[in-house]
Nucleic acid binder design. Structure first.
Lengths: 359, 359
DNA sequence: CTGAAAGCGCTTACAG
DNA sequence: CTGAAAGCGCTTACAG
């Protein structure tokens, strides 16, 4: 018997045509054990012939899973969204899951209700939280109360028992600083990021570590408080470059600020990197689209998102290992991207194309 | 009777507590007519008290709507994804819909099956297609066969009866060209975009229109074929600036190429805009993060996405007007962003901050 | 204006 | 190894 014309085939059509019960079809589709190989093949043949696809809403209503992963974000940089989406959607598809995206206002008074509303309507099997939402207590509380598994991306602080994915900001900042020092710089200025973002402190920490390790004092006059915007990069440059003894290098803790430093330096008639080396952080698209291209650090954003989705899907499986504290907090490798904005002090600009080093 | 502890309240709990049938609760929730005001209020009170939220999977399985809107994209620029997501998610939430995002490979041989699979599992109420997928015949065919309503964002060509949202590329490129001409430029070079993207031809068309309208010949030597990448901007600049008579301005048909021109000009020791004016297209984040900041055109990407979602949701409503050919193809206003990379030829660089003009 | 019944298309116990 | 029954939580079509 063929399936009714017009409407899509259902599990009943497949069962009838394969000469088995719908329960058996369900078993095959969900890869449950205890189906004879011959039966399995017969069912799969009919599934293919009918182009049968189980309907998500029915599976979701009847079963314990929704096959939906939620992604929450607030005011992210464009490069960040793009990377996260790429990693998350691809991993979702591999596992037959789908990604539902919602944007929220981190400062909204009713943000907990917004989250609660979304979760109770959608019942996602898990949620990926990006900064700064992953550090928002209201959001975390609403999710905990609804018992929705979460993975935090680059959270400010690890929460015990709360899965997270991040990169090693401290170590990356150390490496950038080491690069500048190895080029011969000693008066190295630093521009800090927004105080409400945890990465800011970690990056400064790395800078400080590296300086101390080389016996170089961090001159408070050469540390500027920025907020991750282009504007504070420009301001920082003006202030730092007006010191009695100028720095020979500026390490801005993100690319937007580094671009501000570059723009300011160019307006002041300084040659980069001959008169001033500049390093950033993030490897934003713009970092490679300026002259000279910026030395920076690439966050593995898409890998982080992919890993986050994987953790959520894995946790939903019955055969999942009991998680250890270590398996809950994944630290992914970053990439130091050395380009032309850094050189030995007073060097002629390098003419070599950008190259990347992994660690 | 209170709802069972532990599990979330259902429509049955609400009906029981409000002393009505579940059908009446359903009517109130879906804003169907024919419910007495007192009854309605009583139901809403219980809904609020119980924090009842209808489950999407149940509504979707029983009814004709899924409250899901799909967004398909392939290898978009970061700024584009970010804008689309913002506009689309916000509009979805206002209407109680949710946005499911999927990324596809435009060149995948089985792209039609990937689309078919997604659609038959999810049954979205509509789909937003971004370039270049909105021009992919396989994708469109798969969607047509599944009877999923679609809106195309910036499609290469209008398809009759197929809803779309776009901006007026031709007119925008005309305006940029007019700006350069009004500043006193006559030798204006143009860098074309990728030949497989429809916007490329439209932007060149606008340039050509404006030049002719002012009696200026388009010198074929001053037209370079690029592909929207930074690299072809650099190459174009080298080629265009090696002409016997140099152009005094370059109009690159997107920002990445304009940034390439800027980088090349700076390496060649040219002052921008004094020696060379540069204009781009897109208003990418980087456009405002370089020195001098780029004159460009801002695409209303988030508005376009918002409009696309609105059209899909509106079409699903029973009280929807029969669409006219005009209402099917929305053209949204762009914004000319005049910054410091353009000036009169041989001018000293402007010191004025960027300003925007709407049309 | 309101409701009782059937059914959407699956999975979950439970039998055999 | 396989299946018949019940049920997930809503909307639809039909009565009254």
């Amino acid at each position: 018997m063929a399936s009714r014309a017009g409407s899509a085939p259902t599990i009943v059509d497949v069962a009838a045509q394969a000469g088995v019960s719908i329960k058996t079809v369900s078993r095959v589709l969900n890869q449950e054990p205890g189906v004879q190989e011959a039966t399995r093949e017969q069912v799969l043949k009919v599934v293919a012939a009918l182009k049968y696809r189980p309907k998500l809403s029915a599976r979701s209503l009847a079963g314990a899973r929704s096959f939906l992963i939620g992604l929450l974000y607030y005011d992210p940089s464009a490069a960040f969204v793009a990377g996260v989406q790429k990693g998350a959607t691809l991993r979702c598809r591999e596992a037959g899951y789908h990604l539902v995206v919602e944007s929220l206002h981190n400062d909204a008074a009713d943000i907990d209700q917004q989250v609660e509303r979304m979760v109770s309507a959608l019942r996602p099997d898990g949620m990926v939280l990006t900064p700064p939402l992953c550090d928002n207590p209201k959001v975390l509380k609403a999710l905990r109360e609804s018992q929705t598994p979460c993975v935090l991306m680059s959270p400010g602080r690890q929460v015990k028992g709360q899965p997270s994915v991040c990169m090693d900001d401290v170590h990356a900042a150390e490496e950038v600083t080491n690069l500048l020092i190895s080029l011969g710089h000693e008066r190295i200025a630093f521009i800090k990021g927004a105080t409400d973002q945890a990465a800011s402190a970690r990056r400064y920490q790395g800078f400080d570590n590296a300086m101390r390790a080389h016996g170089l004092a961090v001159d408070p006059e050469l540390v500027h408080q920025g907020d991750f915007t282009f504007k504070t990069g420009v301001e920082g440059a003006h202030q730092l470059l007006s010191r009695r003894v100028r720095p020979t290098a500026v390490f801005a803790s993100n690319d937007d600020m580094a671009l501000g430093v570059l723009a300011a330096a160019q307006r002041l008639g300084l040659a980069v990197p001959a008169d001033l080396s500049i390093a950033g952080f993030d490897d934003s698209p713009a970092a490679g689209l300026v002259w000279p291209p910026l030395t920076t650090v690439r966050q593995p954003v898409d890998q982080m998102a992919r890993t986050a989705v994987e953790m959520l899907i894995g946790a939903n499986r019955s055969d999942a290992e009991p998680p250890t504290e270590a398996s809950l907090h994944r630290v992914l490798p970053y990439e130091l991207v050395v380009r032309d904005s850094t050189s030995a002090p007073f060097d002629r600009p390098a003419r070599v194309a950008g190259k990347a080093r992994k660690r």
